[in-house]
Every structure is written in C-alpha cells, then in structure tokens.
C-alpha cells in the first residue's frame, strides 16, 4: 500500500487540496463565528441542529459533505506523509499505513453517519 498506487494517492491529494482551498476557509469561518457567538444560554445563533440536519438530509448535501471530508482527509494524510519524510522521519511505510488508514476509516465513518441522517 505504501509503495504502489502513488498515482491514486496523489490524485486524491490534488483533488483534496483544490477542494479544501475553495471550501474550507468559509466553513472554518462559520465554525469560528458559531464558536464565538454563544449567547448566555450557550446555544450559538448559527450552525443550529435543524439547519445542519436539513443540510445533510438531502442527497446533494450528503454527497457534498462526504466528498469534502473524505478528500480533505486523503489530502492531509498524503501531504503529511511527504512532509514527515522531509522532516527526516524514515518510517515512510508506517506513516503511510497510519495516515491512509485514518483517512480510510474517516471515509467509511462519514458515509455511515451521513446515510443515517
């Protein structure tokens, strides 16, 4: 897994990098606002449960959320693998298995939870 299919992992990395560049800034901004904007009752004004559920209830929302989370995980796993190799960590095979393993588990979990919503 670590040595073969570099094209596969690179394509996921490249797709994830592009997608996160477009999508992550605004999502992170919304999360940040939600985390800050707690009124005294502790419930933020945005990112309410009904809103999130509504967003993820339809198939378009599910697909978008699945693609974003999964590709971002594969992007991060691959880039971190390259980065750690650059930092001098020579256990490349182990880093690859752990990183890609997390991305794979995350991908499956995302699909599992999204289907339930």
């Amino acid at each position: 897994m670590a040595k073969v299919n570099k094209a596969l992992f690179w394509s996921l990395f490249a797709a994830g990098g592009t997608l996160t560049a477009f999508v992550f800034p605004v999502l992170a901004l919304i999360t940040l606002i939600a985390a800050h904007g707690s009124p005294p009752d502790g419930i933020p004004e945005i990112m309410k449960f009904e809103q999130m559920q509504g967003l993820l209830a339809n198939w378009f929302g599910k697909l978008a959320a699945f693609g974003t989370v999964s590709l971002a995980l594969w992007h991060a796993a691959h880039r971190l693998r390259v980065g750690l190799h650059g930092l001098g960590l020579r256990a490349d095979g182990l880093v690859a298995v752990v990183g890609y393993g997390i991305a794979l588990v995350g991908t499956i979990l995302a699909a599992y939870w999204l289907v339930q919503i």
Partner: peptide
C-alpha cells in the same frame, strides 16, 4: 506549506465529528 496539512486534517476530523453528532 506541507505542514498546513496538519490543520487541514484536524478540521476534516472536526467536520467528521460534527456529522457524527448530527447523526
């Protein structure tokens, strides 16, 4: 640039956490 992936990964996990919470 390579190490930005740490935070991309963390935020992806946060989103995953959120999806699990909604479910």
């Amino acid at each position: 640039n390579e190490l930005t992936s740490v935070f991309i990964g963390l935020y992806a996990l946060l989103l995953l956490w959120g999806i699990g919470a909604v479910a």
